[in-house]
């Protein structure tokens, strides 16, 4: 048996230092995500919502969903930190660079960044 494990092509989940969530926990996490999604869709039916209000509600919910999927489903919370760094670097660059680009276009100017134009 030892020879077999020595030569197994793929590792056992080493690197997952902590135990991964159980199936039941995954289902719970999905329920939370689904609940947030219901809230998101709910904003569509608010008649008198302004864009600023919608951004204020929806963007935080989007970020929470993003973090939950990346952290639990993609195991970033448990896995080797190098994965987190590589991915977050790309994400960070993307958000900052394109945020700046849209700012120079005056994309946010309708609200509070008027001064940058």
């Amino acid at each position: 048996m030892t020879t077999i494990t020595d030569n197994e092509p793929a590792e056992a989940p080493v690197g997952h230092g902590h135990d991964l969530p159980s199936d039941a926990q995954y289902v719970k996490i999905t329920l939370i995500l689904a609940f947030i999604t219901v809230l998101e869709v709910g904003t569509y039916f608010i008649e008198e919502a302004t864009t600023t209000l919608l951004v204020g509600i929806l963007v935080p919910m989007m970020i929470v969903k993003f973090l939950i999927v990346a952290g639990y489903f993609m195991h970033l919370k448990y896995d080797n930190p190098i994965f987190r760094r590589v991915f977050l670097f790309g994400l960070f660059l993307s958000v900052v660079v394109f945020g700046v680009m849209l700012t120079t276009f005056g994309f946010f100017s309708s609200d509070f960044l008027q001064i940058l134009r």
Partner: peptide, 16 residues
Amino acid sequence: DDHAAPAAEREEVTVG
């Protein structure tokens, strides 16, 4: 990562 595990050993894994 496609290691040269000799055929017999890999077969055993599958059978197991």
